[in-house]
Amino acid sequence: MRLLHMVCLALLSTLSTSALSAVFTFTAIPDENESQLRTRFEKVALYLEKELGVEVKYVPVKSYSAAVTAFRNNQVQLAWFGGLSGVQARRLVPGSSAVAQGNEDQFFKSYFIAHKSADLIPSDSFPNLNGLTFTFGSKSSTSGRLMPQFFIERNLGKKSEDVFTRIGFSGDHSRTITQVQAGAYQVGAVNYKVWETAVENGTVDLEKVNVIWQSPAYPDYQWTVREGVDKKFGAGFKAKIEAALLGMKDPDLLKSFPRHSFVPAENADYEPIESVAKAIGLID
């Protein structure tokens, strides 16, 4: 058994020899408008390259879980994560830290939106959702799944499966809006920024679907740096990343995320997210 382990380890270690090339890689998925992802974020890569003085590459990913995997496997050293995916990533790679968040992310919120046929009136108190149909966004979204599910379960005192007659995962905030507007689900939970952009752009028919409740504030998206970047790229590299992110002022770059500006963040800011994820059983 011992020998087998050694042989396997030796084989595996040959795989990691190429890990020494010093390209700094990052990934990001914006919470709205994923079109032209590479074109937009390659501009961010250029900015970082200028600020950090090393070659910077952007890797496009499809989902939060793919971003977490890439982070875990050291294929990206910096990632723009959602609240939950950031927590998952930092648990998988101890020593990694949140360095910056969007100005808006300090007090992020979710909107519950309802189709008019559900007869729910906008209110400050939690709506009675019993017996309705409901759609979350993507399975590992903080504003589209984690926090909404937590607020539902805390306010109604039972598991979300027992509250609704049908639960869906639309996969995306804009899909949630579309599906509730089409009446496929009566109620849905959506990232407030995506909703407000959609209202601004006039893609929502407010006669058919509207906000019925907004959640209390919670922390969301953040930049997380992988442990060991100082060792690989030289001492003080992490601080340089942090400075570069906080110093990103070009509205054209910030528009890709889309955020007003970036402000400092630390792991402790996301403790509420971690305990909520534990409470509803998404992480152990």
């Binding site: 380890l9 595996l12 270690s13 795989l15 990691s16 190429s18 875990r72 050291n74």
Partner: peptide, 10 residues
Amino acid sequence: IPPVDGALLW
């Protein structure tokens, strides 16, 4: 092909 970290794979 991005590098695969042997220890992580293990």
